[in-house]
Structures are given as C-alpha cells and as structure tokens.
Computed example of a mutant assay.
Amino acid sequence: MTTVLLTMTGCVTQEHIRSRARDHAVDTVREQARHAQEQTAAELAGDPDGRDVPALVARLRTSLDQAVGPGGSVLSAASAADGTIRADLTFVAIGEAGGAGSSASVTVRLCATVEGRPAPRPVASLRDLPCPSNAPTRPGYQSIDEVVTLSD
C-alpha cells in the first residue's frame, strides 16, 4: 500500500510539472501573438493614408518575422482590395519546468491572423487561425506536442 501511494504521488508530481511547462509555453505563444498585433498596429500607423501598400506589407512582414519568435513563421502577408492588410502567423514555444528530481518540456503551436487597415488611428485585430498541417517548423521546434488557441 505504501509503495502504491508513493508511486501515485510521483505521477501527480510529474503531471503537475508537465502542466507548469505547458502553461509556460502557452503563455509565451499568446504573448508573442499580442506583440504581433501591437507591431501590426504600429506599422499601420506608419502609413496612415495607405499610399504605399506594397512597402507597408513588406515592412509588416519584416516586423512580424521578429514578433513570431524563434520558432514561429509568417505564413503570408498581403493586402486586400479594400485596403485591409492581413498576415497569417504561427507561434511556437517550448515550456520547461522541473522539481522533485523530475522535469518536463512541452512544445505548443498557436496559429493566428492579424489584420487591420491604415488609418489615422489604426487598430489591428487578432483571431485564431486553424493551423495548416504543413505549417513550417524551424530547427529545434519540429516536435509539436499540442496546438493551442488564443483563449483555450
């Protein structure tokens, strides 16, 4: 009986450690997504009239390449006929946690679309995007444990 209790306690501890690692990874990708939304609004504010849309899209893509973090990708960035600028993004993060002689590592992916229009007071919206099955992975981030959303 004592051995069974110790084993069960060990399992709960490992589960708790894995949960902490997951939480850390999820918090990271959601923070990266919010940062991408802020970067998009800032780029849109830089061209309030939307006169040079190709240059705006190119600047946005460059800015978002940084915002998605080391494991993420800009899947696409383009403008629509109505002047809306849209980018589809992936964010990938690894969360790690440890304690009581155990450790865990969890890799999560979040896919999102950020879009907005140049205006005197631009606002960029952020929404979930179903992750494509062929979403690119970067070295060190190939093994995705879970796909998450902006508000699981």
Rank of each mutant, 00 (worst) to 15 (best):
R30N: 13
R30F: 12
E31T: 15
E31V: 09
R34Q: 13
R34Y: 08
R34L: 14
R34G: 04
H35D: 05
H35N: 11
Q37T: 06
E38M: 12
Q39M: 15
T40I: 04
A41I: 06
A42E: 08
E43D: 10
L44W: 09
L44E: 03
A45L: 03
G46A: 05
G46W: 08
D47A: 02
P48K: 02
P48E: 01
D49Y: 09
D49N: 11
D49F: 08
D49A: 07
G50L: 00
R51Q: 03
D52S: 01
V53Y: 00
P54N: 03
P54H: 02
P54K: 03
A55Y: 01
L56T: 01
V57W: 00
A58V: 01
A58M: 02
R59P: 00
L60M: 03
R61G: 02
R61Q: 14
S63I: 01
S63E: 07
D65R: 08
Q66E: 13
Q66I: 11
V68R: 06
V68G: 00
G69W: 01
G69L: 02
P70R: 13
G71K: 11
L75Q: 05
L75F: 06
S76K: 04
S76W: 03
A80T: 12
A81P: 07
A81G: 01
D82Y: 05
G83P: 07
T84Q: 06
T84L: 04
T84D: 04
R86L: 05
A87C: 00
A87Q: 00
D88C: 00
D88F: 01
D88W: 06
D88H: 06
D88Y: 04
D88Q: 05
A93W: 07
E96D: 03
E96V: 07
A97C: 01
G98K: 02
G99F: 05
G99R: 02
G99P: 01
A100N: 09
G101R: 09
G101D: 10
G101F: 11
S102M: 14
S103V: 08
A104K: 13
V106P: 07
T107Y: 09
T107N: 13
V108N: 13
V108Q: 11
R109A: 10
R109H: 10
L110N: 08
C111Y: 14
A112C: 10
A112I: 10
A112F: 10
A112P: 06
V114W: 09
V114T: 12
V114L: 06
V114S: 04
V114R: 09
E115Q: 15
E115G: 03
G116M: 11
G116V: 12
R117V: 13
R117A: 12
R117E: 14
P120Y: 13
P120T: 14
P120C: 00
R121N: 15
P122N: 05
A124S: 14
S125T: 15
S125D: 15
L126H: 13
P130E: 12
C131I: 14
C131V: 15
C131G: 11
P132I: 10
S133E: 15
S133M: 15
S133V: 14
N134W: 15
A135W: 12
A135K: 12
P136G: 08
P136H: 04
